[in-house]
């Protein structure tokens, strides 16, 4: 049984803050378990365990991606805690992956909570945009990123040093409906954003295209929106050529200020 010194705990916390910000921004991919595990091993003075734990966790997490807007179990805490648990308790890294999962879920829930609650900053951002207040907008982005960074620091320091057992109990005793509620809210919240987009863009004459886009995405079993975009391009080109070929329509579009319903057919 190895224990973690205060210096090691602080170094792990610092490392988690850096890779945590990287996960938040998805910039350098330092947040993947293979990198996190290796760095954790380096800090603990046991690179070998770090490499093996990191490699194993990476394989387990290969399919868990944030693609499409769903938040996967947190890869930073998974890579870090798998290595820490394997190192401190001497368990096989394969078993340690499972023991590290509650920590990974805890961080996932915290981020889900932020993804939802940071929506509240957007009203302030709108106000700053109205005033052309550049500093205000920078401030919002700094605050949100800082909140995330500090959260990583606190969770990791508590997990690896202060209260590893306690943290595990908390994660396990969190009511499922509450955790699930965060997930559900995350799934529905984009509706508010799309509602706002529609408020800006929607006109009666565009309803057919809206219906087409919705139904293609609903019924085409495709993992991304490319087919919808391609059909959108086709529809846009069709309308573009149709408008250009009919001088009456063309003049109508040119004359209209971009609002109002045109019944030029």
């Amino acid at each position: 049984m190895e224990s973690i010194t205060l210096t090691q705990a602080l170094l792990l916390t610092l490392m988690a803050i850096i890779v945590g910000i990287d996960f938040w921004l998805e910039a350098f991919f330092l947040f993947r378990p293979i990198i996190v595990g290796t760095l954790t091993g380096l800090i603990l003075g046991d690179v070998h365990t770090g490499l093996i734990a990191g490699g194993l966790t990476e394989l387990a997490f290969a399919g868990l991606t944030p693609a499409g807007g769903t938040q996967p179990p947190n890869p930073v805490l998974a890579g870090l805690m798998t290595t820490v648990i394997a190192f401190t308790t001497g368990t096989d890294p394969k078993t340690a992956i499972g023991l590290a999962l509650p920590f990974s879920f805890l961080m996932q829930y915290i981020l889900l909570f932020y993804y939802s609650s940071f929506s509240l900053f957007m009203a302030r951002a709108d106000k700053y945009a109205e005033e052309a207040n550049v500093k205000g907008l920078v401030k919002i982005n700094v605050i949100t990123t800082l909140i995330v960074a500090i959260s990583y620091g606190i969770v990791v320091f508590l997990s690896v040093y202060v209260a590893q057992d306690l943290m595990k109990t908390i994660v396990q005793s969190m009511p499922a409906w509450l955790a699930h509620g965060f997930e559900v809210a995350g799934g529905i919240l984009p509706a508010v954003g799309f509602g706002m987009l529609l408020r800006v863009m929607m006109k009666a004459e565009y309803i057919p295209y809206f219906i087409i886009g919705f139904f293609i995405a609903t019924f085409l079993p495709f993992s991304n929106l490319l087919p919808v975009a391609v059909i959108g391009v086709a529809l846009a080109l069709y309308e573009y050529f149709r408008t250009k070929e009919h001088p009456a329509l063309y003049n109508n579009v040119i004359a209209s200020k971009g609002d109002g319903y045109d019944d030029g057919i």
Binding site: I212, I231, A236
Partner: peptide, 17 residues
């Protein structure tokens, strides 16, 4: 107008996705 059509089509798809 063409760009708006493309945009609205994609928003329809975004809602479904």
């Amino acid at each position: 107008k063409a760009a708006s059509i493309l945009g609205v089509t994609v928003i329809g798809g975004l809602i479904a996705k």
